[in-house]
């Protein structure tokens, strides 16, 4: 990922970060005076810091599980390329995939070949034991499939053989052949083991399930990540789709205060802003097959963000639905 920013962009970015309470010592506050809710230009997509070199990531990324596994179907390949195009046009950065996701890494390769590789791309892959081969071999193979020279982030998928894989990834990072390293889980599984890894290993990222209905990570993992400066990616932000599609199917209406307090105009805003406004969270990675949904999701990455008290209100409202 390249971080070439003009002075104007840098100021906007700083403003956006302040607005969302993203700078480390500031509380999460929404300040519409600094970033207007109507200003949805990519430049003011909120970003959060990662690592120690002062890099940042947009708070909304994208996932590829199921949605991007379309094989060699030309019609679907082009349709997914349009989704990636919209993502980049709206200022998107992190794209998450895995060798477990069938053809998704090849589909990314197709899209990047068609669209070119923008500076904003933050490519996140995984090593996953059932895919076969060592971590090094898997990363080499995945680079060919994505057609990128290097990944920004490589994670150990679902903690599979993490000791062996993490050691290999640490070595590759030291050699400079990848940017950051991390480890993933989902569905609240193996949190204790993840906590041990976070305390004992030198990792840059963790990825776990965090959404308004799955908040177990708030207890120990998120505070620990904050303390250790580990970036956190929230997977399954819509609980695999059931959350948002369920709300939409039942025709649940958004409370008026959600618009006033944090600029929520739809359920995607409500669910995603809830996630990324947690001070320990770096970004959420909703997956979609549709350009319109991508636009909705990216729009959630703009200020204002819910304050701590608004987050509590969101939880109460949701629990009562």
């Amino acid at each position: 990922m390249h971080t070439r920013l003009s002075r104007r962009q840098s100021l906007k970015l700083l403003g956006a970060a302040v607005a969302a309470g993203l700078l480390p010592s500031l509380p999460v506050v929404a300040t519409p005076a600094l970033v207007s809710a109507a200003d949805k230009s990519p430049a003011v997509l909120l970003r959060k810091p990662i690592g120690k070199q002062g890099n940042t990531l947009p708070v909304i990324g994208m996932g590829t599980w199921r949605t991007f596994n379309v094989g060699s179907d030309p019609k679907l390949l082009d349709a997914r390329t349009q989704v990636v195009k919209a993502f980049f046009e709206l200022g998107g950065g992190l794209i998450d995939s895995s060798p477990m996701y069938g053809s998704a890494p090849d589909v990314m390769g197709y899209a990047l070949r068609k669209l070119g590789i923008p500076d904003s791309l933050f490519s996140a892959e995984k090593v996953w034991s059932p895919a076969g081969g060592s971590a090094r071999e898997q990363v080499a193979e995945l680079k060919k499939r994505w057609q990128v020279a290097q990944f920004n982030l490589v994670q150990v998928h679902n903690l599979t053989d993490w000791r062996e894989h993490l050691a290999a990834l640490q070595q590759m990072k030291a050699e400079g052949s990848l940017g950051y390293i991390g480890i993933t889980t989902s569905h609240g599984r193996r949190h204790q083991e993840l906590e041990q890894i976070m305390t004992s290993q030198d990792i840059d990222f963790i990825q776990l399930t965090y959404n308004i209905t799955h908040r177990e990570a708030e207890q120990r993992l998120l505070p620990l990540a904050q303390e250790k400066g580990i970036a956190v990616i929230a997977n399954r932000p819509f609980d695999g789709g059931s959350l948002i599609k369920g709300l939409q199917r039942r025709g649940e209406s958004l409370p008026d205060w959600a618009k006033a307090e944090c600029g929520c105009t739809n359920w995607a805003d409500f669910l995603l802003k809830f996630i990324v406004s947690h001070p320990a969270l770096t970004c959420a990675i909703p997956a979609t097959t549709q350009v319109a949904h991508m636009q909705e999701n990216m729009s959630a990455g703009h200020g204002p963000m819910p304050s701590a008290s608004a987050r509590k209100r969101m939880q109460r409202y949701f629990a009562a639905l």
Binding site: R66, N69, V70, G71, D73, L76, Y101, G102, A104, T289
Partner: peptide
């Protein structure tokens, strides 16, 4: 089952 029903039917 890393694919959706639409994609499977299309396959």
């Amino acid at each position: 089952i890393p694919f959706s029903s639409d994609v499977y039917l299309r396959l």
